[in-house]
Each structure stands twice: as C-alpha cells, then as structure tokens.
Nucleic acid binder design. Sequence first.
DNA 1: CAGGATCCTGTACGATACTG
DNA 2: CAGTATCGTACAGGATCCTG
Lengths: 126, 126
Amino acid sequence: MGNVKSGEALDPGLACPIAPVVDIVFSRWTTPILWTLHEYGRQRFVELQRRIASITPKVLTQRLRQLERDGLVVRTYHPEVPPRVEYEISELGRSLAPLFATLAEWSAVNLEKVERSRRAYDDGET
Amino acid sequence: MGNVKSGEALDPGLACPIAPVVDIVFSRWTTPILWTLHEYGRQRFVELQRRIASITPKVLTQRLRQLERDGLVVRTYHPEVPPRVEYEISELGRSLAPLFATLAEWSAVNLEKVERSRRAYDDGET
DNA sequence: CAGGATCCTGTACGATACTG
DNA sequence: CAGTATCGTACAGGATCCTG
C-alpha cells in the first residue's frame, strides 16, 4: 500500500490494488454462481439454471466459461447420450469462502445502516 | 445459510445472500473511489478526478452521489467563491477496511494462480 | 441436455460542451 | 471549481430459435 508516487495519475485498475481481484470475483453473476455451487455441490447445467432462476442459458454459459478459465470452477464433460456436464467449485474457488464469510458478516451488521441512509437521503431530496 | 426450501427457484439477489452487499460495495468505480479516499483522506472533487485518471466528471459525480446515498461517503459543501466541495469516507465506509484487507490478501496469494489458469486455458483452446 | 447462433434493446459510459 | 446538460455509442444481457 502507498507505493504510489505523489501526484501521479492512475488507471482505474491501478488506482486501487484490489481492482483486478474485484473484476475476477465480483463481476456480474459470479457470486450467485459460486454461492450456488458452494451450497449445493457439484451439479449439472440445468440445476444451476433452475436455482439461479433469472439467468438465461446464454449468460450462464458465458459466466461459467469465464469462471472455468479463471480456475474457480471445474467443468466435467461426460460424453454420453444425452450429454451430461457437471460443474463444481475448484480448490481455488473454495479458497474464497472466508472472503465471502467476511462479506456476509459485514452485510449482517451494516446492510440495515445502508438502507436507512438511503431512506434518509431520499427523504431530503424530495 | 441453507435456509432455502429444496428445489425452489431463486431471484438473482436471493440466490446468494451476499448479492445485495456486492451491489453496494463492488459496483463499478466504487472500489477505486473508496480506496483513493481511504489512502489520501478528505479531498476535493478535482483531486479525486486526477487520481482516478480515467474517470470522467460525469461518472465520478454519479458514483459519488450513490456512495453518499448509501452512507459510505460524506460530502461537504462549502458555500464559497469559488465553490469548494470535499469528500471523505464515512464511519460506515471505514468499516469496510478489513474486508478490503481480506481481499488484498487473497489477491496476493492467488492472483498469480488465476493468471496461470488463464494462460493454460487459452493454450488449450488454440 | 447443454449449449451455439442470431437478433435486439437498455443503459452505462465517453466526449464535449456549458453554467452558478 | 464543481458540477449539469446533451448527444452518441459500445457492449452486456434478454428473447428466441436451432443442433450435436
């Protein structure tokens, strides 16, 4: 931290050392997918789709591919008829558990404060 | 955790208990802004703009308003000529520090693994 | 079943002015 | 200085249909 020359302008990714990991872990749909995979274990494409009701197959595929590429999810293809594909969290993906726990904890303590702040702000702006 | 009826389909926000807080804390530009505010303390609009070089004033304003509404940032307007506005992290915003630290730690340990996984994946797909 | 292909739309964001 | 206003666009994501 603080290894930045004073007065230097920064790129979005460089202005903040955690930006890269935020892109990886918190890009759209990744948390619901990882969470579902963590909660229900190894499962097939349709199961994921059913559990994350509002996601379309196209987007689910895109995000699963991205997570597979990043090594957070493992895809297993069974060449049968009909084809069967199973997804599960990788070791690396599982290493995010404490992070998610910290997040859940912060949420439990502070989410209500955020909501109150929003209501106060919206009242004042009327 | 696990307080979900079996077989139930879930909304994106409901499929994952941390989804709401992810929207609040990790929506676009919020981490660079919070990080810069945390690193350099209370500062004016232009300073923020200079430090997060690639952000436009319009978007910076939008995101600052959102963060103010959520109670993570405090905006102080000084009715002078020329006008002076200062932004700083709120108490609530500061409470995110351990979370960011956990994230930085995970990044330090695992970012390289993600990059290696990507290279391996891209090699295989050629 | 697990997706690919195609088409379409919303909106988040950038660029470029302009004001109190 | 600290924004707003306006315009234009690129791309994420939805809807629908199709296939190995």
